[in-house]
Design a protein around this nucleic acid. Structure first.
Lengths: 344, 344
DNA sequence: CTCGCGATCCGAAACGTTTTGGATCGATAG
DNA sequence: CTATCGATCCAAAACGTTTCGGATCGCGAG
């Protein structure tokens, strides 16, 4: 039953035409007559001919793939996003007839090696670089070899211009701070990651800027951080904030998972939310609407980001890096029951 | 700065060797001397040489990619799994030096066309077929053209043998039924999908078999179903179960999302869970542990399934379809607070 | 009648790799 | 001395596609 797929050679023999003509007919060139073109197209459709990717890639240099490297190590962190983001990427790529080449890096340290391998094997036309760190080495690497890419997130100091798309975490946390100040809060806390993720930096910066505007400040002991991959340390960090002598009345958390951890620790200490403590997260994970109380958070519309990143990358591949402007997209405030007026 | 990647030609010229020798040295053939082999390997590592995927694919017929087609339409359904499953696939593929080629089908109807396109373009060495339906047309299609594949899920009637891996939903729902019977429940209900998904069939069959063993049966009006992609209809179906004259005291739901919907509808009707009604789901989504009360469910360990499916597929690619046995894996019962003794 | 031109078509090269079938050379066996 | 053999190496073909530079033919202009 095993039917081999017809290739240009078989197709041309069957039609009594040359390989060249069949190829050009399918590509729609004007130097093949309209009747021949139709005849070729009809035969191709009937036999289910699809140009071989490898052959085309070899000649044209375009593989039809866009690469994404995802680290498999800290699954608990990325899982929640990956699905949505990949869906967005795939949706936009499908429109352009491209596919996503997904490579997993089994350890964090390998991520750079894996990227180099993918790029050097020429298996992609461009890369999506996700989860940007403050001084992400991948940016320089890709710029150096002229590989089209779009960074999802931002680098702290953009020494050489490149395409990126990031959610405006600074604006979001600024907004959250102003809303909480308006509700009477004066003592703020921040629970965040100690890893050099750029988003954590900007969320903190946005919070501090808004507090400064209100004449407030984030006390050093009101900020707790721990490595993303260390749940126990994160739990401890949350506890530290709650056990501080001058416990904050409002705590912003860099992500929803942190906020959930914080709420669990608060429950263990019999603190009522939002009566004793207001909590705000970020990401709008499905979990956050089912937590009790429902978690106030921000929605970054990850799937739309995926679509936008893919479109940007296609533009870079098509027209060069200068063709696209970096994008900063706003996150939507999702008020739920975990924040309220300041106690007292 | 744009450095072009060295190819076999440049590398061989630089070393004063032929392309053949360099290629064979890197492949580890014994007909190149140990000293030359080392010299070549050192030079390749230094210059960052990686064989071009397209060139290799063209000659050897192996692309190094394994394909997965995901429909982007019903994102709300697949999102929860996709991340975990893909992680598992990627993890196992990375060990074998392969990558995942992810293609999105923008509409449900297109899924078959997309599959044909991927296969006919020769862009993959094998396919992972996910979300099996009762009489899935993809199985016959792939068998016909001798494309290696593994089905995640099962087909109802396996007319021609092929590799598949499925979670034993029948056993799981049987276990749930027996536990609930032991807790005094006699009136059972089932909330499921009306789509022809195989998993829904088996979960129902497992429930009915266990009930029959206990001398019970599922009343026709105690089963409600609606299309997966229609949240309103699903909500209505849940309501129908709750409003039935002889309301079940225990309702099994084909998935956690259905169970969550049911619990929301129950809350609107002021039914207390588990006092008035026991609810059991399936999937162990993150959400299920944060619902109140926590949802009793089954964990299918999706990531491990991804790993196993990938390993099976690699074996099929390597040694032919006869080399692997289908696998039925058990799901773990995760007892939480949503089930309890029968009322009265 | 010859020339040039537009409309169609095609041969051959090239992309980078792997593999087949030798070629070369020094040493060993007869 | 010649034949054989093992150890090393290499030229060339092939995978399927795209594209460059023609080739062919009929027809109208000169």
């Amino acid at each position: 039953m095993e039917r081999r797929q017809p290739r240009l050679k078989e197709l041309s023999r069957e039609l009594g035409l040359s390989i060249t003509t069949v190829s050009r007919a399918l590509a729609g060139y004007s130097d093949v007559s309209a009747t021949t073109r139709e005849r070729v197209r009809e035969a191709a459709a009937r036999s289910g001919y699809v140009p071989n990717r490898a052959g085309r890639a070899l000649k044209s240099g375009q593989t039809g793939f866009v690469g994404l490297v995802v680290p498999v190590r800290d699954a608990q962190f990325i899982d929640a996003f990956l699905g949505e983001f990949v869906m967005g990427l795939g949706e936009a790529l499908a429109e352009a007839g491209r596919d996503l080449a997904l490579t997993t890096a089994t350890r964090r340290q390998e991520e750079m090696d894996v990227l180099a391998h993918v790029v050097n094997a020429g298996q992609v036309d461009g890369m999506v670089v996700s989860r940007a760190t403050c001084a992400d080495p991948r940016v320089g690497y890709l710029l150096d070899r002229g590989v089209p890419f779009v960074l999802h997130g931002r680098v702290l100091e953009e020494t050489r211009p490149h395409a990126w798309l990031d959610t405006d975490g600074a604006a979001a946390f600024g907004e959250a701070a102003r809303r909480l100040v308006a509700l009477g809060h004066r003592r703020f806390g921040l629970l965040t990651f100690s890893d050099p993720m750029t988003f954590a930096h900007y969320r903190r910066a946005g919070l501090e800027a808004a507090l400064a505007e209100a004449g407030l400040a984030l006390a050093p002991e009101a900020m707790a951080a721990a490595p993303r991959a260390d749940p126990a340390a994160l739990r401890a960090a949350a506890g530290r904030l709650l056990d501080a002598p001058e416990r904050p009345s409002a705590i912003l958390c860099a992500t929803d998972t942190l906020a959930i951890t914080l709420m669990e620790e608060a429950a263990r200490r019999s603190l009522a939310i939002p009566r004793d403590l207001s909590v705000v997260g970020f990401d709008n994970l499905p979990v956050s609407s089912y937590a009790s109380p429902g978690l106030t958070t921000f929605d970054a519309r990850i799937q739309e980001c995926g679509v936008a990143v893919a479109r940007m990358l296609l533009a870079v591949i098509e027209n060069g890096p200068a063709a696209v402007e970096p994008k900063l997209v706003a996150a939507d405030f999702i008020p739920r029951a975990s924040h309220g007026p300041a106690p007292g």
